[in-house]
């Protein structure tokens, strides 16, 4: 099969506009949560920090600029309908879209080749943009998430395998340890993504997928949903506040995703998203109409 260059051009044009918009605009759920948190944070440094954050969002919108200078390493998470007609074209279109958006947004040059230690200057490099693939039987659509993995917010990330007897308390401890140390560098209030599984790489990947779920959503397992709430309340009681200056709250939320574990292992992974959580989601149909569902009402 060969690649249809017209389709690549059309798809990459759409995805590039999608990236550019998400560089300057936070998703609806994040904006709503930040506004709620701003209401609660009435003491100390917190109100003035929230004021600057608010001003920054408004100015990024008005001036059409990336809201944070760290536009991250580009990552895509694709859920591809098995009936989507342009399977050949998706990957070249995503790579092309990153190159275009790097010039148009503009995005910071963030892709450094490992070992050669060279910044490629266009955000395209070995396995970057990172693309995660899932197949969706019975669908003819492409559901695409884009995430800007910034430096500061990637820094607290970790994965490790616990002994089962360390229990879910061991998971909580590992998360708390990381959040009260590295967390202050990740531009809090963060969204915390936790993956629980049988091995490190699955837990790590699920922790990032947890960050793609909306702020305020809940795991479909009631026990997991309760654990999300318990850890969220616990982290909030630590009171990192915005920027680590202290406050009544610490996090925008805690999202957990899980896969079954081995009887002899309990693996945990954690990823954090900073307050500037630039996650964008779009569903693209075969006729190129789209639903930009994380940023309602936006026309690309």
């Amino acid at each position: 099969m060969s690649c249809d260059s017209q389709v690549v051009e059309r798809l990459s044009g759409l995805v590039s506009s999608f990236i550019c918009h998400s560089a300057g605009h936070l998703p609806d759920d994040v904006k709503t949560r930040l506004a709620q948190m701003k209401e609660v944070e009435t003491e100390g440094f917190a109100p003035s920090i929230y004021d600057v954050m608010q001003k920054n969002m408004e100015m990024a919108d008005k001036l059409g600029r990336p809201s944070c200078q760290d536009t991250g390493l580009p990552q895509f998470f694709a859920k591809v309908g098995t009936g989507f007609p342009y399977l050949e074209e998706i990957e070249p279109a995503l790579i092309e879209a990153v190159k275009k958006a790097t010039v148009e947004a503009p995005l910071r040059h963030n892709a450094v080749e490992v070992f050669d230690e060279v910044n490629t200057g266009n955000n395209v490099a070995r396995r970057i943009p990172w693309i995660d693939w899932e197949l969706v039987p019975g669908s003819d659509k492409l559901e695409l998430y884009f995430y800007m993995a910034g430096g500061g917010c990637s820094l607290p990330g970790f994965a490790k395998v616990l002994m089962p007897l360390e229990g879910y308390d061991g998971i909580a401890k590992a998360v708390f340890d990381q959040m009260t140390t590295y967390g202050v560098n990740a531009c809090p209030p963060c969204l915390v993504g936790i993956g629980i599984a049988g091995s490190a790489e699955v837990a790590a990947k699920l922790s990032k997928k947890a960050l793609l779920r909306p702020v305020g959503s809940h795991n479909d397992n009631p026990k997991a949903a309760q654990m999300e709430k318990d850890i969220e309340d616990g982290l909030n009681s630590v009171g990192l506040g915005p920027g680590g200056f202290g406050g009544k709250l610490s996090v925008m939320g805690v999202n957990i995703e899980q896969a079954a574990r081995h009887p002899a292992t309990l693996a945990v992974g954690m990823s954090t998203a900073c307050w500037a959580h630039r996650r964008a989601g779009i569903i693209i149909s075969p006729d190129f109409t789209y639903d930009f569902f994380t940023h309602k009402g936006v026309t690309l």
Partner: peptide, 28 residues
């Protein structure tokens, strides 16, 4: 050092938070 001072506070509150989680996460 403001942030180091804050971290000492965070550490204390972390211990308290983990303490109050005890028993809640015992799914095994």
């Amino acid at each position: 050092n403001l942030i180091e001072n804050n971290k000492v506070e965070f550490e204390k509150k972390k211990q308290a938070a983990l303490e109050s989680l005890k028993g809640k996460l015992d799914y095994m």
